[in-house]
Nucleic acid binder design. Structure first.
Length: 322
DNA sequence: GGTAGACCTGGACGC
DNA sequence: GCGTCCAGGTCTACC
């Protein structure tokens, strides 16, 4: 049987290079962006039969107005549907042209570049684990943790690529083993507990994404999860497509000082930042993030030229100071 | 409600 | 090359 290729029609304003290289997770395993061919490679975990994860490597490219995803094996019809859904989530294809226009009406700075979509993971589980691995740690360690999680616990596709671990696999892993083999440190127990909460259905993406669920309720729920504090919850909110809150950390403080010219204590700077982004209302995270991203691109060149192994490892507050 | 200190890793720094 | 210090967000204990 021949390898599967599927095509996806994105919104007319979609730009693969711009919209993949829009958030740091595109630099984390198992994602791999190739700047030369402008292609996104990664292994997706599909479910040929319920409870039987079946990894498949894919390469996503854009040809004119269409997206193409080529796999390293033949996919069943059900798997094709799952792959399509996961790719749509990663590329935020549900952000329509009209929604992008609404954002650009509120913040015209990004109208010219067209930035409105933020890259994310094929599953909420991966997004939450990636968020926990980005807390209280320098970026190079986040890169290591995600690479190790995939190498140690991720299934393998026919061509040998590693997938991101499934909730079931992570839930079965002993915390001590996770710490020793994946270098996640004290996050070990919290990650295993999160995986168990996904398995049990306690973390319900449908409820968290439902427009009928208020931002306040979603945020409050996220704060109850192990390893999730105000920063992580704010970040997961944006990964759910809820942009009405900020996710402020030390990098935000650096941005406030270096780019916006704020002075005072960290607490005062955080207050200035909240006030600065307030006019952007339901879009404030996007306004904040693209401002930050713009600064990175001024320092390091267009994000679609960044390589995971070189430029991608240099994002630490210390290195960005000058 | 606010705050201090512990948690773990890896990079920076001094010797 | 080795030891020490520090950054980073969350959690717990305490006031």
């Amino acid at each position: 049987m021949s390898n599967t290729r599927i095509t996806i029609r994105p919104p007319a304003d979609f730009d693969l290079a711009r919209d993949v290289c829009s958030y740091g997770y595109f630099l984390l395993a198992p994602n791999h962006w190739d700047p030369d061919t402008r292609s996104l490679f990664r292994v997706l975990t599909l479910d040929a039969e319920p409870g039987t994860p079946a990894p498949a490597s894919c390469r996503v490219t854009q040809n004119g107005s269409g997206l193409s995803a080529r796999f390293d094996r033949s996919l069943t019809r059900a798997e094709q549907s799952q792959a399509r859904e996961q790719i749509r989530r990663m590329l935020s294809l549900d952000t329509t042209e009209a929604e992008a226009r609404d954002f650009h009406k509120v913040d015209q700075r990004w109208k010219k570049s067209g930035r409105a979509r933020l890259f994310r993971s094929p599953t909420l589980f991966e997004d939450i684990v990636k968020t926990v691995t980005s807390c209280n740690v320098a970026w190079p360690s986040t890169i290591t943790m995600n690479a190790r999680l995939c190498e140690v616990l991720g299934g393998r596709s026919p061509s040998g690529g590693h997938a991101f671990p499934t909730p079931a696999k992570l839930a079965r892993t002993r915390p001590a083993s996770l710490r020793a083999r994946c270098r996640v440190g004290y996050r070990d127990q919290r990650l295993v507990e999160l995986a168990k909460l996904f398995r049990s259905g306690h973390i319900d993406e449908a409820w968290l994404s439902d427009p009928g669920t208020s931002d306040d309720d979603a945020f409050k729920f996220l704060l109850t999860l192990p390893g999730i504090g105000p920063y992580a919850a704010g970040n997961i909110m944006q990964l759910l497509g809820r942009f009405s809150r900020l996710a402020l950390d030390t990098e935000s403080v650096r941005h406030g000082k270096a780019v916006l010219g704020y002075t005072g204590t960290d607490r005062q700077i955080l207050k200035h930042l909240e006030a600065h982004y307030e006019p952007f209302g339901d879009h404030k995270f996007r306004s904040y993030w693209f401002e930050l991203w713009d600064f990175y691109e001024q320092k390091k060149g267009p994000a679609h030229t960044w390589d995971r192994e070189t430029t991608g490892k240099t994002f630490t507050a210390a290195l960005l100071k000058d």
